[in-house]
Amino acid sequence: MNKGSSSYFVAADGIECGPGHDVSIGSLGKNGDTAAVEFIDVRNVRFTNTMNGARIKTWEGGQGYARSISFFNIEFDNVDHTVLIDQFYRDRSVQVRAAVAISNVTYSNLRVRGTSSRATAVAFDCSGGGCTDIHVNSMVITGPGGRRTVARCRNAPVAVSGQVYPEIPCRC
């Protein structure tokens, strides 16, 4: 068994982030490692001028799981990639499609004042069957000056409730 990383019952509350990178759950599964990440609660966070926002990142070839993760009451101001799940992070020499399984992820109350610096505000990029039980509730993310944003999905069935913009194209 490969070495791994484990984190349980982690809470991040009341953070002002930026300028800089993000709050990432990852990098999970690098070098085929096994991840065990569970019960992560990120809430009351404001991202300003950051590269990413609410992000989950796993390496291709990784094993294990990341589950029961919530992002609640999040504000974005000029963030490049506001909401992101990436199961395809990889070393260019690796050609494996398996990844750490991601499940039971909730995004709730991502505020109306949210702005993305790029047109793609939400990206759920999952390997076949690698993401399950993703929920988006009450999210509005526009571009600067209220410009239009989009969401994209790959292999990510998403349950949507409340006002959600941009529209999530991979609803279950």
Results as ranks from 00 to 15, higher is better:
86 D>N: 15
87 Q>N: 10
87 Q>P: 11
89 Y>A: 14
89 Y>P: 14
90 R>S: 12
90 R>V: 03
91 D>M: 15
92 R>N: 15
92 R>H: 14
92 R>M: 13
95 Q>V: 09
95 Q>H: 08
96 V>K: 15
96 V>F: 12
96 V>M: 15
98 A>F: 12
99 A>M: 10
99 A>Y: 08
99 A>G: 12
100 V>W: 02
100 V>G: 07
101 A>L: 10
103 S>P: 13
104 N>W: 05
105 V>R: 00
107 Y>V: 01
108 S>P: 01
110 L>A: 04
112 V>T: 12
113 R>H: 03
113 R>L: 02
113 R>W: 00
114 G>F: 08
114 G>P: 02
114 G>D: 03
116 S>Q: 08
116 S>M: 00
116 S>P: 01
118 R>L: 06
119 A>F: 04
120 T>D: 07
121 A>G: 02
122 V>P: 00
122 V>M: 00
123 A>I: 04
123 A>R: 09
123 A>E: 06
124 F>W: 03
124 F>V: 02
125 D>S: 08
125 D>M: 03
126 C>P: 11
126 C>E: 07
127 S>K: 10
128 G>L: 14
129 G>R: 10
130 G>K: 07
130 G>N: 08
136 V>A: 09
136 V>T: 05
137 N>G: 03
137 N>H: 07
138 S>F: 13
138 S>G: 13
138 S>Q: 13
138 S>C: 11
139 M>I: 09
139 M>E: 02
140 V>K: 03
141 I>L: 01
142 T>G: 05
143 G>I: 06
143 G>Y: 05
143 G>M: 01
146 G>H: 01
146 G>K: 01
146 G>D: 01
147 R>K: 07
147 R>M: 03
